[in-house]
Amino acid sequence: MKNRRYLVYDVFTDRALAGNPLAIVLDCEGLDTKAMQAVAREFNLSESVFVLPPEDSRHRARLRIFTPDYEMPFAGHPTVGSAVALAELEENGGSDAIFVLEENIGPVRCAVRRGQGATFAEFDLAKLPEQLELSADPEAIGAALGLGPHEIGFENHRVSFFSAGVPYVAIPVANLAAAGRARLDNAAWSELAPRKSEWAFASPYIYCRETVDHASAFHARMIVPGSPSYEDPATGSAAAAFAGAVMQFDRPGDGTSRYWIEQGLEMGRPSRIRLELEVEGGRLTAGRIGGQAVKVAEGTLFA
Rank of each mutant, 00 (worst) to 15 (best):
R114W: 09
S95F: 00
L22N: 04
P107Q: 08
A40R: 02
R113W: 08
A143N: 09
L63D: 03
D96R: 01
D56Q: 12
I65Y: 14
A143R: 06
E103R: 12
N20V: 11
A140I: 09
L52P: 00
R15L: 01
A61T: 03
V51F: 03
N92Q: 09
V84C: 05
A23Q: 05
R113T: 15
Y70I: 15
N44Y: 14
Q131E: 14
P107Y: 04
L86P: 02
L147H: 00
I65W: 10
T119C: 15
L63I: 05
P78A: 15
F50E: 03
I152N: 04
V39M: 08
L147Y: 00
D137Q: 10
R64G: 02
F43K: 05
L31D: 01
V100M: 11
R41Q: 13
E103P: 08
E102R: 00
N20F: 06
A143Q: 10
G19D: 02
E90C: 14
I65D: 12
P54W: 15
L22T: 03
D124L: 13
V25C: 10
L101C: 10
E133W: 13
D32V: 06
D27W: 14
R114D: 15
M72F: 01
R58A: 08
A40I: 00
G93M: 12
I141Q: 11
Q37W: 09
F74N: 01
I105C: 09
G76M: 01
Q37E: 07
P53T: 13
L31S: 12
L89G: 10
L132F: 09
A35W: 07
E139P: 09
A23T: 04
I24E: 03
S82D: 05
A61V: 09
L63Q: 01
G148K: 09
L101H: 04
R113G: 13
T33W: 11
D14C: 10
G94D: 05
L45Q: 03
A118P: 02
T119P: 08
I105Y: 06
N92L: 05
H150C: 11
L31E: 03
D96Y: 06
R41F: 11
L147D: 00
E91W: 02
N44K: 15
V112R: 08
R109K: 15
F12E: 11
G115E: 02
A126T: 12
S82H: 04
E102W: 00
P129Q: 08
D137K: 01
T33C: 03
E133M: 12
A136W: 11
R109W: 04
L145A: 13
Y70N: 15
G148R: 07
G19R: 05
H59M: 07
D56K: 13
L22D: 01
